[in-house]
Design a protein around this nucleic acid. Sequence first.
DNA 1: TTTACAAATGCACTTGTGTGCAATCCTAAT
DNA 2: ATTAGGATTGCACACAAGTGCATTTGTAAA
Lengths: 338, 338
Amino acid sequence: MSDPKPPSFVSAQMVAERAGVSRSAVSRTFTDGASVSEATRAKVLEAAGALGYHVNHLARGLRERSNIVCLVVSDIVTPIRARMVDELTRKLQAAGKITMVINTESTIESVSLALRQPLHDRADATVVLSGAPPASLVETCLANGQQVVLINRDDQLMGSHNLGVDNAMAGREAFFLLRRAGCKRLGVITSTARTASLRERTDVFLDIAAAEGIPASVTETGPTSYASGFEAARQLFGRSNGPDGVFCVTDLLALGFMDAARHEFGLRIPEDLCIVGFDDIEQASWDSYKLTTFAQPLADMAEHVVHLLLHPEAAGIERRLYAPAPRWRRSVRPGPSA
Amino acid sequence: MSDPKPPSFVSAQMVAERAGVSRSAVSRTFTDGASVSEATRAKVLEAAGALGYHVNHLARGLRERSNIVCLVVSDIVTPIRARMVDELTRKLQAAGKITMVINTESTIESVSLALRQPLHDRADATVVLSGAPPASLVETCLANGQQVVLINRDDQLMGSHNLGVDNAMAGREAFFLLRRAGCKRLGVITSTARTASLRERTDVFLDIAAAEGIPASVTETGPTSYASGFEAARQLFGRSNGPDGVFCVTDLLALGFMDAARHEFGLRIPEDLCIVGFDDIEQASWDSYKLTTFAQPLADMAEHVVHLLLHPEAAGIERRLYAPAPRWRRSVRPGPSA
DNA sequence: TTTACAAATGCACTTGTGTGCAATCCTAAT
DNA sequence: ATTAGGATTGCACACAAGTGCATTTGTAAA
């Protein structure tokens, strides 16, 4: 007997009918600067409220910009990534953008697949936090009028914005920190995920060490994780003559390394072993670690991403390098031991 | 002289013109089960490839379901939240859904504002991970044909799916773990964010303790964080006669509490003090902590969310409670001390 | 009261897609 | 060669919005 009437979204047409005006009037009521009389506006607002009307942003996006930003990211659970996602979603939202998150693996195929999504969704922009996007797909995005922002990606693709942290500076600073502490046998702990960022931190550190005549080894045991750092320490101190100063290219590696060095081999930090990390994740400041490390200016970077997206034509394409901020804590001696 | 031709998305119309067919043919080529001849399909695919055509999901969403799912969440940086977001985005994506993230504060106003977004964006469903959504707005979402899934929220709102973890069980188990260890003076460490989940864990623990005649105190010093746990330990052990067994309603609180107890007061864990946490964040398993805690079956929960969204009419509204899985580690003695 | 001019309104078109319906094409059987 | 039948195809509409343009309404000045 009764109409089942499946619930569905209420359109401007329905509001117009209820308010006894044209659909144009409804549209104009919700458009800034449009010409509507106070009486009509009131009728429309009443009807809209009663019906629970909400402007369809998707339909609006058909005509002009969609205000959608695609965030391509892997390893969200990683503290540093989670913080970046947090900063970006928060700031994009405040700027009136809609954030679509694409959770991808770091593999080329997975990223390629993911990068097709912003095209399908008519995103205004694509922000890549992880993985190495193929140049051809980035070009397609650009050709379709999207902006592309790569964060901490090596690929200096034409037409994309590139934001990154100064890895060379970090590698250099890490070395000098350890040398000032009087470390004699250095080591770099990195991961098998050979991204350009990690590689640059490693290479600069090694180059300076070589130039200064201090021996330095490289150890990598797996992905960029606590477990890999732990395993690295096991390997290094399992044989004699382990390092007395290490640069872990990531805080997660550093914390794992630290735990293994302390609890498996009884080493004292910083007396027997100095450790420098990178990222300044929250855990690095915890009382069990007090890790000396470098902070990425995430808030500044996110801020700049939003700025780029809000003013697409303002400054043109740019590559910007941010200086990592050293955080001196307890894992490095202030001066030589003994 | 040359056409500036601002880059923009290529439409099915353009593909049709280049392929010399009607726009319908293009649409049918990209629609499963539609009737297109092999010759036409080939021409269309060629043209689409050359032009870089991608079906506009937004426009498609105008007609039927949009396949957009809204994720309302706060405190993404928190390990447990990051993991839930990771599980959900990954599984939703695999199911062909598009995830848009709304990063909100936990305040009522902020959540209210956030909940309007899925309405504007014609999301098929809204998943709420944080905050207390006002009933009226949830009703609006439901009235507009959306599905609403609340995860670990108290509010048992009509028409919304409710998934949660069995907090009562956790509180009970925590108590028995500590009693079996022979603890005489118990304590609960919680936060000032009085969500239903945290409150239930606290209350059940206290009730049983009272019933069993073991004294138990409650301490809350701030938000649900490492720092709050740290501060709680300072307060409790700053005066004499601190507890010898505590249930921290969150792992973050537990780790902070642990660090302060060890490093500020020299307490040995589990000899002098037993600690039980909740969440089983990655850090709880780290060598410096080895925290006994309870794991939320995040993967199962995410799986079920996707199931609910894929089969909207299948099972109707439901409330489902998941059993937390105990993780026995080193922060609780297996039996009474001395 | 008439005129002039601005404000308000509605028609119709636009955006990009999917699809019902009718017209056309092609193939095979009579 | 004719026809039946199925496979293709294209037209036109629907979806939900914004907006240029012409029309109507309203108001104030002459």
